[in-house]
Design a protein around this nucleic acid. Sequence first.
DNA 1: AAATTTAATGTAACCGTTTACATTAAATGA
DNA 2: TCATTTAATGTAAACGGTTACATTAAATTT
Lengths: 333, 333
Amino acid sequence: MATIRDVARLAGVSVATVSRVINKTDSVNPETARQVLKAIEQLQYEPNAVARGLAGKKMGIIALILPDILNPFFPALARGVEDVAHKKGLTVILGNSDDLGLKESSYIRVLKKKYVDGFIFASNTIREEDVEALRKEGIPIVLLDRGLNTASCAVIRSNNREGAKLAVQHLIGQGCQKIAHIYGPQEFITARERMLGYEEVAGGLSEYSPSLMVQGNFDMESGRKAIEQLLARHPDLDGIFAGNDLMAVGALKALHERGIRVPEQVKVCGFDGISLTEITEPELTTVAQPVYEMGGLAARILLDEIENGIRENKLIELEAILIPRKSTYKEGL
Amino acid sequence: MATIRDVARLAGVSVATVSRVINKTDSVNPETARQVLKAIEQLQYEPNAVARGLAGKKMGIIALILPDILNPFFPALARGVEDVAHKKGLTVILGNSDDLGLKESSYIRVLKKKYVDGFIFASNTIREEDVEALRKEGIPIVLLDRGLNTASCAVIRSNNREGAKLAVQHLIGQGCQKIAHIYGPQEFITARERMLGYEEVAGGLSEYSPSLMVQGNFDMESGRKAIEQLLARHPDLDGIFAGNDLMAVGALKALHERGIRVPEQVKVCGFDGISLTEITEPELTTVAQPVYEMGGLAARILLDEIENGIRENKLIELEAILIPRKSTYKEGL
DNA sequence: AAATTTAATGTAACCGTTTACATTAAATGA
DNA sequence: TCATTTAATGTAAACGGTTACATTAAATTT
């Protein structure tokens, strides 16, 4: 591999001039520039990213730390991030945190040493102190699905509360009177918001009762278990809004096992819009988050800060939309 | 951040000695070492990975290039790779190639400049020339699901042919007589092998006919379409072996739409073992590849070459196992 | 026409490590 | 006892870029 010095020698100029030509950082005589370009072409020269990184403290890498790429919510996010990054010539490092604050800290420690340009955390457990520390060092961050107390960096999420309201309103529109909610872990702001949206709308129903809410764990199995509890308490419920799709799928399965027919007897709506929802029988109505776009947006905002130093410490909420499918079909439609 | 010079100064030694202590690359007086360690501790010193990378031409990063993380086959692979890498202190760069040789070449070009330690390609389109070029430069590679003509690096895959045989034998065992096969794109060795396995076993059936095989595209939609063709040709078929789970799911849907009951009228078996197969109704029998393990193994082999220079240019085939589920239940079970 | 900018380029320090080579003192061998 | 290893450490040159500062010549200003 040719180095910048080889190019300088061949073009008969100093390395500084070559660097100027490459980075267009300073004026250089057009004729000289032509010589340099010719030499670059001739030697097939490409600047070494590591040397650049050492000098400039930036490796052209962004880190995406998410809980678990196996969770079907995250591949779309990762793809959104990667597509934008790749288009701009950056690469993406992937880290699975398993929602362990410790593992996140460990990624931060390792990746700072590698002069990563910035971080995207799709995580509920990222520590306030870690965020602050990174900010102080001037390392750009974007957060997904995080609370707003951290006003020191951009936060992206979808409008979970409104989305939840859409879901419940839809269930009501399809004729449901007694709608239960399986909510996710309350340390997740997304779970809390969705629950609030549910309460806001379902609270107005005559059949409403707080005991219509049971906790789940955002996974299939917990959706299944939740159904047991719910049916024991309210054998006559006719609608279920699950805090995410995985739990909704679990619910669907549990209902199916009990011979309860969806949507005839009970209608079910999920949240997230992962592709699983098109696989179930019946296909699952869900409130879809624009996950791919969220990833792309996160990357764009991060890159904006990396490249132009533009720092937008705001909360951006994207709209979640309802996708009606068979699991909530009104009888007769 | 403290540098090695700060440490050297504080410990009253030269940077070379500090480096020796850190890397245990040369003998140093135990007492001196203690001083150095004390200074390191005191300054909270951590070696800069980029400077190290520049000096040693290795950044402690491995690149995982796969077709598309959105394809449900790959998250498990990625997780397998990342878990092993993370345990060894390496980080993983993720690239989506969309099975475009060009995009793969582009990743290689960009990542070589970043002194990536090695590559894992889970790809069917990676070019022979690219592999050769990397080999020549001494950059470790591991391939997944690739042909063996490239004998110049380790190749990992599961035993697709045997797996396919398991599938067909299972269908036969469940009473199927006329078993169709939806095969994947023939440029993928995995698809070819599975088809061969199918032929090997199904070819012995009295009802066998080459027209029982139709091409699919490894995605859901193509599985659906394949069913149309197959039913037109053979309305009396009683078993389907799909070349992968996605197509099997498509088939399941198409059969359901036509009111054909699975498994009573037609039994369906997929291949891959992605989690979707637990979601369908009925749950899908499949031949599961140990995807997570394949990723982990790929990473281990790669790391072995990176760290110890041990190069194993062999083909490793892991065993795929049959997971019987409802979609192939024999009547009366 | 002298003084001041501006354009174009070069020199060399710096980013933070690793490592080949040199040096010195202590240990071993003949 | 003198020559030869070996251990312990230091010096300085890589690695391959960027960039502050210096220099020179040409263009502007007054």
